[in-house]
Design a protein around this nucleic acid. Structure first.
Lengths: 240, 240
DNA sequence: CGATTTGTTGACTAATATCAAACTGTGTGG
DNA sequence: CCACACAGTTTGATATTAGTCAACAAATCG
């Protein structure tokens, strides 16, 4: 599979994308790079001239607050373009980093500019991606704002399951998740101790298991109920 | 001032917007409506065919979680188009409501579609607005995730001050803020009791005062420090 | 195989939530 | 103009959740 294929697999969910548009995306020049885990890709304050496509592996965006605490803002899986917003927001307001070893594809802003000017269907599909990105942030605000620790964790894991499934990266209810408990804590507005305790409860109750970089959802109904999960916010279009 | 002027005042911050584009925006058909406080404008699950411009007053977006708790996702001030995302995300994933009495302007999706297809500069300016919206969500995740109650409150109020200032709605360090303590709590992932206590501390320390729908920032330096505020995420372009 | 990171555990603390009541201010109708 | 109603704010007491600290165990990596 070519690097660009994962991007197309994602964008195809947007039915307004034409075959001509897809062909155009295929012609985008992408510089592929292998990157070690825990490497910073773009830093707060940078003015990127390119966007980064996650081809393989996990990445995340984060901010470090004035009190030194790090907040993870999002996890990114293959098919995501986590810094697409840099196309129109000159300066990065947060960092982008790898979590696991990653294959990344870099696409110049001016190349993207050229295809969106030429093909309204691509413009729409990419704009839509940034809107879904925002929708996920909203759900994270709800998650951190009003849900107790166990629901937060369940919600995050179900969200990842759904997003991984949408690009074909799940096997039933098992998916790769190379994220430490400390990172989970930073994403959920918790500390590692309660994260560990909730994970153990889930394991003991045979609800789900996070082990060896892999999430296994055992009791699907229970996880969804604990999470209070409603997938509307992911705006996933199922091609029926 | 025409309803559309507040929108233009906002979009002018985006320097890529041409005079021709501004003329085009002026020609957009806008249906103006006066709306009572605490009215729902669009509901989760709706499929809007129009966008809503806040001309006067305060609005907010929120979600109600499965446990019945309401999380306010954003506050909206004149010049904002809080449901602009509905242009490309068919179904609303949250509610939009007024907080104070509001003047709202409704613009049909197809009218917006028409101007963005015709004028790339308008497309960019509007896309950019949705990206700033997302950037503010990110900062809210940080705010709720890692900051203590007093910083959260200070941060929210400074953000509003900056955004109000950007559309000329502040008078020195005083601005209108018709939001109850209970609503503040819902926006900050807190409950009304600690919100009240923090506000009293700020008042006693002559740092800031929230009274009669008005925020008065008394000790600017102290508020900024307490908030750990860095305005990068607002992506405000100052026309020097 | 030792070094380092990650996960686990227990005891204790701190922050915020919860509950319930009282108070204040504002607007309304008699 | 006053009494009342109502929304919003303030207060105190207590409960609960999650944080902190520190030590150890297990897994992973060169």
């Amino acid at each position: 599979m070519l690097p660009v294929d994962i991007m197309i697999r994602r964008l195809r969910a947007d039915t307004s994308l034409t075959e001509e548009g897809i062909a155009e995306i295929r012609s985008l020049p992408i510089r592929v790079k292998e990157v070690r885990p825990d490497s910073i890709i773009v830093r707060e304050g940078d003015r990127p001239t390119q966007c980064c496509l996650v081809v393989q592996g996990f990445a995340c965006r984060f901010k470090v607050a004035e009190n030194g605490k790090r907040q993870i803002l999002s996890f990114h899986i293959p098919g995501d373009i986590p810094d697409l917003q840099s196309l129109f927001l000159g300066k990065m307001d947060h960092d982008l980093a790898t979590i696991s070893p990653c294959t990344l594809g870099f696409i110049d802003h001016h190349a993207i500019d050229a295809v969106i000017s030429k093909h309204a269907s691509i413009m729409r599909a990419l704009w839509r991606e940034t809107l879904i990105d925002a929708s996920i942030f909203r759900e994270w605000i709800v998650n951190i704002g009003v849900r107790p620790a166990s629901s937060r964790l369940a919600h995050l894991l179900v969200e990842l399951r759904e997003r991984m499934a949408a690009v074909g990266l799940t096997k039933d209810d098992v998916f790769e998740f190379p994220v430490t408990q400390a990172e989970l804590a930073e994403a959920l507005g918790l500390t590692p101790v309660p994260v560990n305790r909730v994970l153990q409860e889930f394991r003991a109750a045979r609800v789900l298991d996070v082990h060896k970089n892999t999430v296994t959802i055992t009791d699907h109904a229970k996880v969804m109920a604990t999470a209070g999960f409603n997938d509307t916010y992911l705006h996933i279009v199922r091609n029926v």
